[in-house]
Each structure stands twice: as structure tokens, then as C-alpha cells.
């Protein structure tokens, strides 16, 4: 099959779409602010309700949504290359389930502790995610090397254990805690404030910086660990970097947004189906594509059922799933005709 869509075209389209999407998202919300008035509001700093809603509620949320989408998609792309499995995502190294377990534990066991206030839950989730990744990494390590297959299986095993832990916590929790746990797992950015955004940047930025320049190395790694070594890639160091970068990026994303996944799985895959697998284009494109998808999902989540809020996890799955299926079916048809 020859692919009709060149890398550069898709990347440029995505890149051009991002600022447009950001503007559109800034003009939408439960609180009516006309899109054309936004520059005036921001420029003149009219100290009104609209200014405060825009600046303190909407903008941090939009900003965080784009970042979270980027983090999920980028780590998904990197992990897929590392595991040489297009169905891999951050879930496989345990970061999501670990964060989920810690968040559930926080809600069920420490929810009343007000000293940490609003910071308790995201901190717990982040720590849980990172701790689980560390555990997976240590357990998969055999005499200095970390075979990818062992890493994968260890991740799956720890996911199952975390799942059991979450189940136990759900069983032990009362109705209201149950509700909190469920909502956390569905994800959402409703509680976003600027301080939360800054806090999320602390792990997100190093994570993204670790992952973003890996294009060529990931290409080699996608051929195989041995081939990557033969091509001069320090494989062990690269693996460490991918796992650490993903843990930081996804840990930060999940801590800020709750149980969101799927973006990490679907965005790199979509790009591959459209253009191909070259990670030098795949990484930047999925970073932007992830931001777009998550921004779209979050905007829908805060506007579709206003004044209520639709959990964003439902929307990413709802938006990404059918599109993903369509691409797969199209790909299958083309493969038949090729």
C-alpha cells in the first residue's frame, strides 16, 4: 500500500488547527462570552465577571486540556514503539492503574483530611502512578537489562493487582465515596485552576522534554531491541528514558485530569494509519493531535450538557472510537485491494 497522505501535510494541518481550536474553545462555555469580545476583554482587563470567568476558569482549563492530551498521546506513541505493539499505551507500565488505586485509596481512606485540601487527591494520584511504574520497572529488571516482554507482562500483572485493590476499596467505600471514585475514574478537568496547571507542569514539562526528541531512536527501537543497539542506540538508557518520561507525563496528566486514557492509544495509531510510522513526524504530530482531541473532548464535556458536566473519559472514547474503527476498516479494505 502506498500512502496518499504525506507526513508534512498532516503535521502542518494539525499545527494550523491547534490555535484555531484553542480560540474556538475559548469562545465556548456555559457562561456566555462572545468570541470576538475575548481580545477586548483580555486586552482592556475589564474587571468584570466575564474577565474572571475567562481568565480564572476557562483559560486554565483549555491550557491544561491541551497539555494533558499532548502528554497522553506522546507517551502512547513512545511506549508503542518501545513495546513494538501498536496497542500499547501508558496503561501498560502501570501508571494509570497505580494513579487510580492511589486516588481511590485517598478518597476512601483519607478524604476527610483537609490539611492538604484540594491538593491531596492529585498528589496521591501522581505518587501512586510513579510508584507503580517504579515497581514494574524494578520487578521486570533482570541482571541489569529490562527485556521488553518481561516489562509488558509485569505491567499487566501489576495492573490486575491494582484493579483488585480498587475493587476492594470500592467494596469498602460508602455510597458517596463510591461516587467520588467513579467520577475520578471517568476523568475531567472541571476543577482546574491556574495553581493546578502550574503544579501539573512540574512533572509534565520534564516528561515531554524527555520524550519529544526521541523520534529517530524510536524508529530504530521499533525494529527491535537488538537492531536498535546495532544502529548505535544505547537501548537500556533509551528504555529508562521512555519509561521515566511517560511516567512523569502521564502521571501529571492523570493527577490533573483523573482517569483518562484512550487518547494515548488512539492518536498515534490514527496518524500511523493516515501517514505511516516514522516517529520523527509521528511524535510532533501526535503531540499536537492529542492536544486537539483532548481539547475537543473537554470542550464538549463542559458545554454539551451545561450546566452539568459530562465526564471527559466518556467523550474521548465516544469521539475517538468510531473514528478509529473507520480508519481501521478503511485500512483493511485498502489492504485487500493492494
Amino acid at each position: 500500500m502506498t500512502r496518499a497522505v504525506p507526513y508534512k501535510l498532516v503535521f502542518l494541518i494539525l499545527l494550523a488547527a491547534l490555535p484555531i481550536a484553542l480560540c474556538v474553545a475559548a469562545g465556548m462555555g456555559a457562561y456566555p462570552i462572545a468570541l470576538f469580545r475575548i481580545p477586548a476583554i483580555l486586552w482592556d482587563r475589564i474587571e468584570g465577571e466575564g474577565y474572571r470567568v475567562l481568565l480564572y476558569i476557562r483559560l486554565p482549563r483549555i491550557f491544561l486540556a491541551a497539555l494533558v492530551g499532548t502528554a497522553l498521546a506522546l507517551s502512547g506513541a513512545a511506549l508503542q514503539s518501545m513495546f513494538r505493539n501498536p496497542l500499547a499505551d501508558s496503561g501498560l507500565i502501570g501508571v494509570s492503574s497505580g494513579a487510580s488505586l492511589a486516588a481511590s485509596a485517598w478518597i476512601a481512606l483519607a478524604g476527610a483530611d483537609s490539611r492538604l485540601g484540594l491538593w491531596g487527591l492529585p498528589t496521591a494520584a501522581f505518587a501512586g502512578g510513579l510508584a507503580t511504574v517504579w515497581l514494574v520497572w524494578r520487578m521486570a529488571r533482570t541482571s541489569g537489562a529490562t527485556p521488553t516482554a518481561t516489562l509488558l507482562l509485569t505491567g499487566i500483572a501489576l495492573n490486575a493487582i491494582a484493579g483488585a485493590g480498587i475493587g476492594l476499596l470500592i467494596y469498602c467505600s460508602d455510597e458517596e465515596e463510591l461516587r467520588s471514585i467513579t467520577f475520578w475514574q471517568l476523568g475531567g478537568l472541571n476543577g482546574t485552576t491556574w495553581p493546578l496547571v502550574w503544579a501539573a507542569l512540574i512533572p509534565l514539562v520534564p516528561g515531554l522534554v524527555l520524550l519529544a526528541p526521541l523520534g529517530r531512536a524510536l524508529n530504530a527501537l521499533a525494529l527491535g531491541d537488538r537492531e536498535a543497539y546495532h544502529l548505535g542506540i544505547p537501548v537500556a538508557a533509551l528504555q529508562r528514558r521512555i519509561v521515566l518520561g511517560s511516567a512523569l507525563a502521564v502521571g501529571g496528566a492523570v493527577a490533573a485530569a483523573g482517569g483518562v486514557g484512550f487518547v494515548g492509544l488512539v492518536v498515534p495509531h490514527m496518524f500511523r494509519l493516515l501517514c505511516g510510522a516514522d516517529n520523527r513526524w509521528l511524535l510532533p504530530s501526535t503531540a499536537v493531535g492529542g492536544a486537539l482531541l483532548f481539547l475537543g473532548a473537554d470542550t464538549a464535556s463542559r458545554t454539551l450538557v451545561q450546566p452539568a458536566e459530562l465526564p471527559v473519559g466518556i467523550l474521548t472514547a465516544l469521539a475517538g472510537g468510531p473514528f478509529f474503527l473507520w480508519l481501521l476498516l478503511r485500512h483493511k479494505r485498502e489492504a485487500l485491494h493492494a
Binding site: 462555555g29 456555559a30 457562561y31 456566555p32 465577571e49 474572571r52 470567568v53 476558569i57 476557562r58 482549563r61 461516587r179 467520577f183 475531567g188 472541571n190 476543577g191 482546574t192 463542559r302 450538557v305 451545561q306 450546566p307 452539568a308 458536566e309 465526564p311
Partner: peptide, 11 residues
């Protein structure tokens, strides 16, 4: 019971 959107609270 519905999750409250932050902007909707202001609106």
C-alpha cells in the same frame, strides 16, 4: 445529581 460545571456555576 450532576457534576457542576465551573462556568455554569457563575452563569
Amino acid at each position: 445529581y450532576k457534576e457542576l460545571n465551573a462556568e455554569a456555576a457563575v452563569a
